[in-house]
Simulated assay, not measured.
Amino acid sequence: MSIPETNNSNELPSMEENYELSAQQKESYQKKGHIALRQVANKSEIASYEPVISHLVKELNNHDKPLEQRDTYGKAFIQISNLWEKSEAIRRFVLAKRFAKIAADLMGVDGVRIYHDQALFKEPHGGHTPWHQDQIYWPLDTDKTITMWMPLVPISQEVGSMTFASESHLMGYINKMVISDESHRTLAGYIEGKGFETMSHGAMEAGDATFHSGWTLHSAPGNPTDTMRKVMTVIYYADGIRVAEPDSKARESDLKSWFPGLQPGDLAATTLNPLVYSRSAN
């Protein structure tokens, strides 16, 4: 499918400039497993990229049932992956050095690669996102993974950021349950039993972002408003990580999709996983 560009990609902001993190912010992320950062992208940058991303999501959305006829996962969001492959403009956004350096700085690693990106658009009156760990899907045996979650439009308090279970990332791999009603019930009980503090970062402006570890338990409320909650995410992992033996169908599927041609033990690096930031190269 040919996706028309609404801007000349070379004229769009490059977002190469550094976003300075304090030692306190890095420490907070390491302790809690999540953090909110304000104006990671400025208003002008978001104004340039939001229409391009929204256009592509609309073109590629394959939901053909009304909300009330979908399952819990289908009600949670419109999910489109690897937009950077389909648009030169979005490639410029997803592979932005500024975002990648934040990911590397928070994890305390030399460099990061892209796992994949995802547009997660929660429709008006869309459902909640159940409790889950992202990394149960990823064939990577490491704690050096992180997701940037950036709204492309202002998000009100009633929609809010995701809700995180602080310090849950320190538990590592909790179970293999994919996003479902069952994962929501079971993991909510687990969170209560462990006494983890649950925390939302509340209202967010377009261009603000949360970053969370692949092991951090999180969920998201439904969208009670009449407007689309438009969010773009980018998943990073530390350069030098190797592919793990997939221990579930979800990880087998991700191995084929995101590490094509690789086997367990191989360096996790293909053309789909470009090195987007390296401290040693800068």
Results as ranks from 00 to 15, higher is better:
74 G>R: 05
59 E>T: 13
102 I>P: 00
85 E>L: 13
102 I>R: 14
101 K>A: 00
145 T>F: 10
117 D>A: 13
152 L>Y: 11
52 V>K: 10
64 D>V: 10
113 R>S: 02
56 L>Y: 08
159 V>N: 07
118 Q>F: 06
150 M>F: 11
85 E>S: 05
61 N>C: 01
125 H>V: 07
71 D>H: 08
66 P>E: 10
154 P>W: 13
65 K>E: 14
106 L>Q: 09
139 P>Y: 08
157 Q>E: 15
142 T>P: 00
93 F>D: 04
99 F>T: 12
79 Q>C: 10
62 N>Q: 14
110 D>Q: 15
126 G>V: 09
103 A>Y: 07
91 R>C: 12
132 H>L: 05
69 Q>Y: 09
122 K>L: 03
124 P>G: 12
90 I>L: 02
90 I>Y: 03
151 P>E: 14
137 Y>I: 07
118 Q>C: 05
81 S>H: 12
126 G>C: 11
133 Q>L: 00
129 T>Y: 08
88 E>S: 05
140 L>N: 01
72 T>S: 02
81 S>A: 14
52 V>S: 15
87 S>D: 06
156 S>D: 15
121 F>I: 00
139 P>A: 07
151 P>T: 09
111 G>V: 08
160 G>K: 08
86 K>G: 02
161 S>P: 01
116 H>L: 03
147 T>E: 04
112 V>D: 00
152 L>C: 06
155 I>E: 09
158 E>W: 07
76 A>Q: 12
80 I>V: 04
113 R>T: 07
58 K>T: 14
152 L>R: 10
139 P>F: 11
102 I>A: 09
111 G>T: 13
85 E>D: 09
63 H>D: 02
76 A>V: 05
136 I>M: 15
114 I>F: 02
111 G>E: 06
113 R>C: 01
136 I>T: 15
160 G>C: 06
135 Q>V: 04
84 W>H: 13
104 A>D: 02
71 D>S: 03
69 Q>V: 07
128 H>Q: 11
151 P>W: 14
104 A>C: 00
70 R>V: 05
82 N>M: 13
161 S>D: 11
108 G>L: 05
135 Q>K: 12
151 P>Y: 14
107 M>Y: 06
97 K>H: 15
121 F>A: 02
111 G>Q: 04
130 P>V: 05
52 V>Q: 14
104 A>I: 03
60 L>Q: 03
97 K>Q: 15
100 A>I: 06
155 I>S: 05
77 F>G: 00
54 S>A: 09
151 P>L: 04
139 P>W: 10
62 N>W: 11
53 I>L: 06
